[in-house]
Nucleic acid binder design. Sequence first.
RNA 1: UCCUCAGUAGCUCAACGGUAGAGCAUUCGGCUGUUAACCGAAGGGUUGUAGGUUCGAAUCCUACCUGAGGAGCCA
Length: 435
Amino acid sequence: MPTRITISEAVRHEAETVEIAGWLYNIRKSGKIVFPLLRDGTGLMQCVAVKSALPEALFETIKNLTQESSIVVTGKIRADARAAGGFEMDVENLEVVQRVPESDPYPITPKEHGTEFLMDHRHLWLRSQRQHAIIRVRHAVIKAVRDYFDSHGFTLVDTPIFTPAACEGTTTLFEVNYFEDEKAYLTQSGQLYNEANAMAFGKVYCFGPTFRAEKSKTRRHLTEFWMVEPEMAYADLEEVKRVAEEMLLFITARVLETRREELKVLERDVAKLESVQSPFPRIGYDEAVKILQANGSEIQWGGDFGGTDETILTQQFDRPIMVDRFPSAIKAFYMAPDPDRPEVALGVDVLAPEGYGEIIGGGQRVHDPELLLRRIEEHQLPKEAFNWYLDLRKYGTVPHGGFGMGIERCVAWICGLEHIRETIAFPRMLYRLRP
RNA sequence: UCCUCAGUAGCUCAACGGUAGAGCAUUCGGCUGUUAACCGAAGGGUUGUAGGUUCGAAUCCUACCUGAGGAGCCA
């Protein structure tokens, strides 16, 4: 029995007869020689089947294979410049596990397709080279995020997905029935729980899915997305910014190191990622507003950035930028005010370059008990629901802060994608719940 | 919720008031180095749905449905 290998391992098996199990990606025929292109999840391998070298029945079987039929191919690996991956396999035997019938052929042909068709066939679209590359970059990004925090003194403490109270206004929360009579909501952020965890462990992070029932139908919104959120005790805004920058540098370096092939498939200009170096430009909200006004935006001091504003702003720089000290009025109740300028908050947004916009939002939290209580009242939030959160300020409160990064927005930027929907295997969006 | 655009063969599109067409996919035939292979042939249609205008509607009008892009919104 020949050794079963994956296509990614073929380099180490030159001149050996091996077995590869996979699916027929495509097939090119030229009379008495055919080139089945085999896909196995680790790569693509061009096979070569020559009529004169094979039993007639086997050659006929190979010649009549249909796209995405599952097959196990045995043959000898040979280096050949004419093959896309540098290696090809001379077919000696081929077992058909299942032949896709031509009466109902595989729908995604190697030609162009529209968004609706591809999204309806997302479960099959994932087999395409481009989607495969994106998901592998996503994996590398997530691994890098975990490696960064794990090696910098952070403890992983995941926060709940069911949350009891509507803390931030119910319009963007998904409501679910929690047994009889009780309502629960799917989490929008692990942050409040993260603050409790930080007071217990010092530096923590959580990483999981978050849910927002926003009726936003744009290229940067999902209703279910993954977010990593570090939180640090005894940390101020400057420390939050330092960690955010260091983490992003770690991620981009890792992807450039381990996912060159995938970036090539995606036709990503890697020079754009290579220019992501320290230090990231740090600009204040005031300055950002001036830049925007000088570039034709109608933004006034006090307003939040629109999508166009973020695009204008990020196009001025070749690397992510950090914008801090937004007006408190447009930020969350727990955002700490600047002691020197109480009208602005010690919050920071990190905007990715090339028009990708906000990928990180965070800052320093209110740690003064009196102020926090006043903020909860001002925002007309149900105080009882925050008793446990207020406890954190009663028992050993300290300056602290953290941030949240949306994984999909980060992956979309690193891959250079038009739309966030391709960065997750099964995107959940307004008007798109299936498959 | 609002604005814009689009629904024609399995897929991507053409025809823009006068006989619904091409490429890919599928089937059949050809080809011993193909790279979204190529060459020849065949089958494949209630033009999103319902009304309306017209001698005549895929094409013009109205409503609805579906999708896409965007706005608002987005701790």
